[in-house]
């Protein structure tokens, strides 16, 4: 009688329907291009997304790779994909061991209910991965008005710890005001609003690049990124955001490191 229940559910008649299929993502060309024929091990990556979200325009995502961040062994790249968006690529991050921890939090756009895929490449060339489904519901009770205004375009907000102890991992929060226009949206008169996004955030510790984020159009408006830093001695963290027009915004903050 279990199998009867199962068959009925396959017909969708008794479907509980709070999960979305997570299979088939390996066949997405953009993902195949990144993996280049290698098979990721679906382990070692923790992908935190809400199972259900009422607002597909800004879905929080946290990726954490359970791997060391030492000079000789670290996570060197993390890729995020949304399997059923108009374009599946979300973001690519290049990481340096100075981050201390391979953990990033950001916000993405999901066009519909779908699976989100995180892939991570370690410094010895292994791919790790995780996939989680998100159900997107559109609720009239949560209907939102656009809150982006152009008077603070590319204004940045950053929070960096003033001081850290040697070996301590500090948390850095960043956000830049930007509409992240997808190029898929129409204005009131029905004209397509051209794509306009922040393409890159480049982070350096003194002169050493430690994090590069490449963003696609499905990153949520006002791109947000939370990452970590574990410097060995005092120095300065500098960041530069680059828009697809070439315009940039910068931020710099010193961190004092004591034993």
């Amino acid at each position: 009688m279990q199998n009867i229940r199962l068959i009925a559910m396959m017909f969708g008649l008794l479907a509980i329907g709070f999960t979305e299929p997570v299979w088939g993502w390996q066949r997405i060309p953009e993902i195949q291009a990144v993996l280049a024929g290698t098979e990721p091990r679906m382990a070692g990556v923790r992908l935190e997304v809400p199972a259900v979200t009422q607002d597909g325009s800004s879905v929080p995502v946290t990726v954490t790779v359970d791997a060391p961040m030492r000079a000789d062994a670290y996570v060197e790249a993390i890729h995020l994909f949304a399997t059923r968006n108009p374009s599946p690529e979300l973001a690519e991050y290049t990481l340096h061991p100075l981050l201390g921890r391979a953990s990033l939090s950001t916000r993405i756009r999901l066009d519909q209910s779908q699976a989100v895929v995180a892939l991570a490449r370690t410094s010895d060339g292994e791919w790790l991965g995780a996939v989680e489904s998100v159900r997107v519901t559109v609720s009239g009770c949560l209907s939102r008005a656009g809150t982006y205004t152009s008077d603070n375009h590319m204004q940045v907000r950053v929070r960096v710890p003033d001081r850290l102890r040697t070996g301590q991992v500090g948390e850095v929060r960043t956000m830049i005001q930007h509409p992240m226009e997808t190029g898929l949206r129409e204005d009131a008169s029905g004209r397509v609003i051209p794509a306009n996004i922040i393409e890159e955030l480049h982070v350096k510790w003194d002169d050493q690049p430690v994090l590069r984020a490449r963003w696609h159009r499905a990153m949520a408006a006002n791109p947000y990124l939370l990452f970590s830093i574990a410097p060995a001695q005092s120095g300065a963290l500098s960041m530069r955001w680059t828009e697809d027009t070439g315009a940039t915004a910068e931020y710099r903050a010193a961190i004092e490191v004591r034993p």
Binding site: M1, N3, I4, R5, I7, A8, F11, L13, L14
Partner: peptide, 24 residues
């Protein structure tokens, strides 16, 4: 639902309603 469920039922396990646990 009943159409499908009944079909499944007949196909698998004998007379209707003898076993109330047969499906949801």
């Amino acid at each position: 639902i009943p159409v499908l469920a009944s079909a499944l039922f007949w196909w698998s396990s004998g007379p209707a309603h003898s076993d109330p646990q047969w499906v949801d």
